[in-house]
Design a protein around this nucleic acid. Structure first.
Length: 225
DNA sequence: GCAAAGATTTGCT
DNA sequence: GCAAATCTTTGCC
């Protein structure tokens, strides 16, 4: 049996948890699918109702309720009407906070990830034969390292959607879960930056360095990372 | 009840 | 480098 992720970690301050998640593994074992495993290389923290970039900013609602619950649980939302995004709830119950998983380095089940990306892309859009062929070609060409680059791509590659909200990511029996880094994994080189796509939030939320990146990963080999 | 905007990705200008 | 695709959630009338 796999070890599972120590739940007590998630009650720690969210910024500390975010740093510790870099290098951890996300594991997917869905019935009828090849096992998928990725190394977390990019995350963002969203902390409290005071964080104007967080989904908790309006206070407790039907959508964000799970952020107020126990830590170590999945919160998955739909953004821009099309992309699902996976978060891990943090902080003790009652205080709404979560960490958005923005990027994975694919480790196991790359063919399954590529297939999942293709299936989701084809089902999401109405395409004629030419458009369909174009999508098939694009997904086939996609670099292995980019199969789970970006929060929408993480969810697509791992077959995650809003139904996964509430999943206990610390349970070793969960078909979607977190695991600590494997023995022999390289140590991540963590750099912080401001968060992405939250210009609407205003000061100081647009500039707080709450994005955590492993700059030694292939995903972030580019200077832009 | 309706209007507006969003924790993104892709493709084309 | 910009805009489209797409639909849920929230805020206001």
């Amino acid at each position: 049996m796999d070890p599972g992720f120590d739940r007590s970690v998630f009650t720690r301050p969210t910024l500390e948890v975010a740093r510790r998640l870099i290098g951890a593994r996300l594991v997917r074992e869905a019935a009828g699918h090849e096992r998928r495993e990725g190394r977390i290389v990019e995350v963002e923290a969203y902390i409290g109702e005071e964080d104007r970039a967080s989904h908790a900013r309006p206070g407790r609602t039907a959508r964000n309720a799970v952020m107020y619950g126990p830590p170590g649980v999945a919160y998955v939302y739909l953004v821009y009407g099309m992309h699902d995004c996976l978060n891990v709830v943090t902080e003790p119950a009652g205080r709404p906070a979560a960490i958005l998983i923005r990027g994975l380095e694919p480790i196991v089940g790359l063919a399954e990830m590529r297939r999942a990306r293709l299936v989701r892309e084809l089902s999401r859009r109405r395409l004629d034969e030419t458009g369909r062929a174009r999508v098939v070609a694009r997904i086939a060409r996609l670099d292995d390292a980019r199969l789970a680059a970006g929060p929408g791509a993480v969810a697509a590659a791992f077959d995650i959607d809003r139904r996964a909200t509430g999943t206990d990511l610390c349970d070793p029996d969960s078909d979607l879960r977190l695991e600590p880094p494997s023995i022999g994994d390289r140590s991540p080189v963590v750099r912080t930056t401001p968060r992405i796509g939250i210009a609407f939030a205003g000061s100081p939320w647009t500039t707080v360095p709450w994005r955590f990146v492993d700059v030694s990963s292939a995903l972030h080999a580019d200077p832009e990372a």
